[in-house]
Design a binder for these strands. Structure first.
Lengths: 146, 146
DNA sequence: TAGGTAGTTGACGTTAACGTCAACGTCAAT
DNA sequence: ATTGACGTTGACGTTAACGTCAACTACCTA
C-alpha cells in the first residue's frame, strides 16, 4: 500500500499540467497560488493542485489571471458577511452569463466550421466540365466565402 | 424604398461592432480585411462586414488573429487543388476538435459556478448558533473551497 | 572535494493586440 | 479662406503572460 504523496515539487506539478515552473512562480507572484516552503523550496499541496487545475481551466475558457484570481477569492471568502455575500453572488452570476454567451459563440462557430467541413469533404471535380460538384447530388457547388 | 447602403465608412463599421477604427486598420495590416479605397479613405463592403463579424467572434472564442486569418484563408481558397483541399479539411477538423474541447471546459466551469451560486444564495445564518446553514434543509453548510 | 541535480531570486526580453499621439490630407460648409 | 468633421499614415507606448538568462544555494553522491 503505497501512500499517495500529498505533496508536490514544482517540477512534478508543472510537468503534470504541462506548464513551466516559471508559470507556477508567476501565478504565485500574482497571488493565485501560495504553496508552503521547505526552506526555500516550494511545496505544493493537493489543494494547490486543485487550484492550479481551476486556474488553467479558467485560462482555457478565456478568463484573465486577474479574473481567475477574483473567482478563487470568491470561493475563499467563507466568512460571509452579508454585503460580501451578495456581491459575490452577483459577480458569480455575471460570470455565468458571460460563459453562457461564449458557449453560444462557440456553438455558432462550430456550426459554420462543421458545415464548411462537410462541404469540402463532399466536393468532387466533375470529369466533363471540370467544375466542383457535390459528390452525391451532382449539383455544382457554389462559390466559397462566409 | 430606401436603398440600404452596401458601403460603410470606417467609423460606421467600427461603432456598429463596438471597436475602434484603429482596430480595423490593424486587422487590415494583418491581412484580415482589405477594403476598397476612395482616394485614401477606406470603403468597407458587406463582405468586409461579414468577415469582420467572423473575426470578432473568432476572437471572442479565443482564437488569435493569426488563427482567424488562417481560417478565413481556408474559406478563400476556392481553387481547390487536391492537396490544399485535404489540408484545409484537416485544419478545419482540428479547429472543430479544439472548440468542442473548449465547450466542455466551459460546461464544467459553468457547472461549478452554478453550484457555487446556488450554495451561496441558499445559505443563511442560524440565529442560535451563528453558523451558516442551508435555508431549507437547515443543515450546516460545510467549508468553502474548490 | 568536486560535481550534479533541483531549485531559488531578480532582471530583462518578448509577443499580441491594440492605444495614443502627432502631423497631415480633403472636402463641404461657413 | 478658414474651420471642422472625418480620415490617413507612421511611430511609439502599453499590458498580460509568460520566456530567458545569470548568479546563487542547498543537498546528495561518487
Amino acid at each position: 500500500m503505497t501512500e499517495k504523496p500529498r505533496q508536490f515539487t514544482i517540477k512534478e506539478l508543472s510537468s503534470e499540467f504541462d506548464v513551466t515552473p516559471r508559470t507556477l512562480r508567476y501565478y504565485e507572484d500574482q497571488g493565485l497560488l501560495s504553496p508552503e516552503r521547505n526552506g526555500q523550496h516550494r511545496i505544493y499541496s493537493i489543494a494547490d493542485r486543485v487550484r492550479l487545475a481551476w486556474i488553467l481551466r479558467g485560462r482555457r475558457v478565456g478568463f484573465s489571471l486577474a479574473e481567475v484570481g477574483e473567482m478563487l477569492d470568491l470561493y475563499d471568502l467563507g466568512d460571509g458577511r452579508e454585503t460580501q455575500r451578495s456581491v459575490t453572488l452577483q459577480r458569480c452570476n455575471e460570470r455565468i452569463k458571460a460563459l453562457e454567451a461564449q458557449r453560444e459563440d462557440i456553438n455558432a462557430t462550430l456550426k459554420e466550421l462543421q458545415g464548411f467541413s462537410a462541404l469540402i469533404s463532399n466536393m468532387v471535380r466533375d470529369d466533363q466540365t471540370g467544375q466542383w460538384i457535390h459528390a452525391e447530388t451532382g449539383e455544382p457547388v457554389a462559390t466559397f466565402g462566409p
